[in-house]
């Protein structure tokens, strides 16, 4: 299983407009192209997860995630906000790179936790922040995932 296979070009946004954590979450959810009602429910669930503790893991990276009945398969999205937003991250620094993961409550292949783990592993690579900054289009993001072999 490789991360590359879960991302599509349409679910990658390198120029997020949001200026707050809430706006960024909504923009990320919109990348999944689910109906409006489902977007609202996903937003609520992601907020509930964030209220337990931020998913900002430091070094500019955040991994908002949740399981919800409104999706029937694992979905992921990536967004970048170069100037960063306050995400209440562990290191108290603004978050600039966002990996969204949502999954149904039950998955036959049970890939939610492995994908979450792989994104966390990818995020720990020392050059990842700089490489994410350099991206000019979604295809380069996909190529970076492939290059890192995660």
């Amino acid at each position: 299983m490789e991360l590359r296979e879960f991302f599509t070009e349409g679910a990658i946004q390198l120029d997020l407009k949001g200026e707050s954590k809430d706006e960024i979450l909504k923009e990320l959810i919109a990348l999944l192209a689910v109906d409006e009602k489902s977007q609202g429910i996903l937003y609520k669930m992601l907020k509930r997860r964030e209220n337990l503790g931020s998913t900002g893991i430091g070094r500019g990276i955040a991994i908002p995630h949740c399981r919800s009945l409104v999706v029937n398969r694992l979905r992921v999205a990536f967004g970048r906000k170069t100037s960063g937003v306050d995400f209440k991250a562990i290191d108290e620094q603004p978050a600039r790179y966002f990996f969204l993961i949502v999954a149904p409550p039950l998955e036959v292949s049970n890939r939610y936790l492995p994908v979450l783990g792989k994104i966390a592993q990818f995020s720990k690579e020392p050059d990842v922040s700089a490489r994410l900054d350099e991206l000019t289009n979604p295809l380069e993001f996909l190529a970076l995932l492939q290059e890192k072999g995660v």
């Binding site: 429910i41 669930m45 509930r48 009945l69 409550p105």
Partner: peptide, 13 residues
């Protein structure tokens, strides 16, 4: 139904 969904999602979490 929306409330039920939210409860179920919270229970999953």
């Amino acid at each position: 139904l929306e409330a039920l969904l939210e409860i179920q999602d919270l229970k999953t979490q």
